[in-house]
Design a protein around this nucleic acid. Structure first.
Length: 579
RNA sequence: GCGCCCGUAGCUCAACCGGAUAGAGCAACGGCCUUCUAAGCCGUAGGUUACAGGUUCGAUUCCUGUCGGGCGCGCCA
């Protein structure tokens, strides 16, 4: 028992493996064990649901079969008890010694016990702003979610390529360059470009009111496409300025994105005619009203009309469908991606279905290539409609981030009036941005959600500040303890200790799940459960008593702190030593 | 017109391949600070999962229909 080799595999795969073997031993080799977390505490830690289905298939009594599975399963040193319940559930209580060993293992591991997944080259495409305009609230979710997914993929050992597929091409850039030339004559260009939105609006006004300006703008588009050096240089200048705006936002939001991650739509320009020719040679193209389209039977409506995927406009121009196909080709042929996560608004779901279907038909995507649209909903205002400013304008992202920090500063100041301002500013930054990100990440990304400052910054319930606060409580203990001797054994006796150790042991399964499903709200839910388990433990189990530290509990504290910090880090949220 | 998504407690949200008595937080009510940060913990109350059928040992989950909401649908991205 003392030197028994215990597996390092994370909990769910381990339990599923052992029960799969047991099912095979009792004559159900193909049955799924279906182990999951217990639905209620009184059911134990985990429950195994696979017996009922297997018994049904074999026409056996499920409870009798469950008993056979219990007799057959090898969970020595892992489970403390196995019980049949209800129609044939098997409830599993894990052994304290096993959980203690898990905690010790994770503490000695930089990955906190999270094994690397089979290595893949994974791209996360996110943010992908239109450089013609300033970043607004519509860019928030994609940025936050994409960044979290990129961090998580990296943590589980993938080769991650972040990609900012910026919109840096199209007719509007002719207009913008024309306006740059015009304002540079009055010496105002650099000043005006400080506010991209008004620059865009003013150039649009000029375009609409002055035919001569409009002609110039159109001329610049042609020159741009023709590679005219002078216009190209101006365009590059505009792109660079717009990117500095983006980078400032990324920095404020704490996103990993930088200039190295940018590959704009313009990058694929030269390939578009080639690509369209290839589609034609493969017999996928049909001319329709002067445009080149791919008809997809997969998206036929009831009348039998197939949906059209336009890859070339009448007149010869290309569209984002073409660019996206070019990007797929580049990513498979040149970058050799195994997987690509497109973090883009759900409203583009049909586009991506058509895109991937066309790419597969054209042979741009291998059968096993995992190219996925990671859709997300819209941020709504209190009225349930897309969030706007009071005056009805689009909410600028920079303003939103500033407001988050300002609101957090007011709250921090009222809570800790004695702290110096610099400290409160720093806390407010981490808390405000963290709250904003967590409010987003903790919701199922598929649906819209209602934006609510008070809820995200209330510092109560399932919020970033609650998690950050739990972390500071851990750190506070270690500040009090100073140096400590970690040689003592980790023994779990109290229910709150068992519950906390169980949560800690689940970390790997949750991270793996999110890496697989790209659903960050599962990680949030986990961290909230962990923080709650820690808070209960903190209330029920004193770590320091009469000046003496309890080594077992210190170890639980240590791993709790590390797991909270790492989990929040994977979400792009900072932790603080004090709040 | 066609297609996709959604409808869960007063509010905001969960529910992992179909699992047990549908879970949290906020708001409401009641407790707990001389002790590691009370931004905390404990408890009470709150539900015909839009509605009607069907499949199943078992349905918030799958299927059909109805109602309600959002979004998308050949030359924007």
């Amino acid at each position: 028992m003392f030197f028994q080799e215990l597996p390092t595999m994370s909990l769910l795969p381990l339990l599923n493996d052992r029960f799969a073997a047991a099912l095979a031993a009792v004559g159900a080799p193909n049955a799924q064990p279906l182990v999951q977390q217990a639905g209620r505490p009184e059911f134990g830690d985990y429950q195994m649901n696979g017996v009922m289905g297997a018994a049904k298939a074999l026409k056996l009594n499920p409870r009798e079969m469950a008993q056979k599975v219990i007799d057959a399963v090898d969970l020595a040193g892992i489970a403390a008890s196995l019980e049949i319940a209800g129609p044939g559930f098997i409830n599993i209580k894990l052994a304290d010694s096993f959980l203690a060993q898990r905690v010790e293992t994770a503490l000695g591991d930089a990955q906190l016990g999270v094994d690397a997944l089979p290595r893949q080259k994974v791209m996360v495409e996110y943010s992908s702003v239109n450089l013609a305009k300033e970043m607004h609230i519509g860019h928030l979710r994609g940025g936050i979610i994409g960044d979290a997914l990129a961090r998580i993929q990296g943590f589980v050992g993938q080769e991650v390529v972040r990609q900012n597929h910026v919109g840096d091409w199209g007719t509007q850039f002719g207009m913008l360059v024309a306006y740059m030339v015009e304002t540079s004559k009055t010496g105002n260009a650099s000043l005006e470009l400080g506010d991209l939105d008004s620059f865009y609006k003013k150039s649009k006004v000029r375009f609409d009111e002055d035919p001569a300006f409009a002609d110039t703008a159109r001329d610049y588009v042609v020159k741009l496409q023709g590679g005219d050096a002078e216009v190209l240089a101006l365009w590059k200048q505009f792109v660079a300025i717009s990117l500095t705006h983006c980078n400032a936002i990324y920095q404020k939001l704490g996103l990993l994105l930088n200039d190295d991650d940018v590959r704009g739509e313009s990058f694929y320009n030269d390939d578009l005619p080639v690509l369209v020719n290839e589609l034609r040679e493969k017999g996928l193209l049909t001319e329709s009203d002067g445009a080149q389209v791919v008809f997809l039977d997969e998206f036929k409506n009831k009348e039998g009309d197939p949906a059209a995927f336009i890859v070339q406009k009448q007149g010869g121009g290309y569209l984002y469908a073409t660019t996206d196909l070019g990007a797929i080709r580049f990513r498979t042929r040149e970058l050799k991606l195994d997987r690509c996560l497109y973090v883009v608004d759900s409203r583009q779901a049909l586009h991506f279905q058509q895109l991937f279907t066309t790419a597969r038909k054209a042979g741009f995507l291998a059968a096993d290539a995992q190219f996925e649209h990671i859709g997300h909903g819209t941020i709504m205002g209190p009225d349930g409609k897309p969030l706007k400013t009071r005056s009805g304008d689009t909410v600028k992202l920079g303003d939103l981030l500033d407001e988050a920090v300002e609101r957090a500063f007011a709250l921090v100041s009222s809570k800790n009036p004695d702290q110096d301002e610099a400290t409160r500013r720093e806390i407010a930054r981490a808390v405000g941005i963290g709250a904003l990100k967590y409010a987003d990440l903790s919701k199922n990304r598929n649906t819209d959600y209602i934006f609510d400052w008070d809820a995200m910054l209330s510092f109560e319930g399932n919020t970033a500040p609650y998690l950050q606060y739990a972390y500071t409580r851990v750190q506070s203990i270690f500040r009090k303890v100073g140096d400590w001797d970690r040689r003592g054994a980790l023994l779990l006796s109290e229910p709150a200790e068992h519950a906390l150790a169980l949560e800690l042991a689940r970390f790997a399964d949750v991270v793996h799940q999110v890496a697989r499903d790209s659903m960050p709200h599962f990680l949030c839910a986990y961290l909230y459960n962990l923080a709650t388990a820690f808070s209960r433990f903190y209330e029920a189990c004193p770590v320091l008593q009469d000046g003496v530290a309890n080594t077992s509990r210190l170890k639980l504290c240590e791993l709790s702190g590390q797991t909270l910090a790492r989990g929040l880090n994977l979400l792009g949220i900072e932790v603080l030593e004090t709040m």
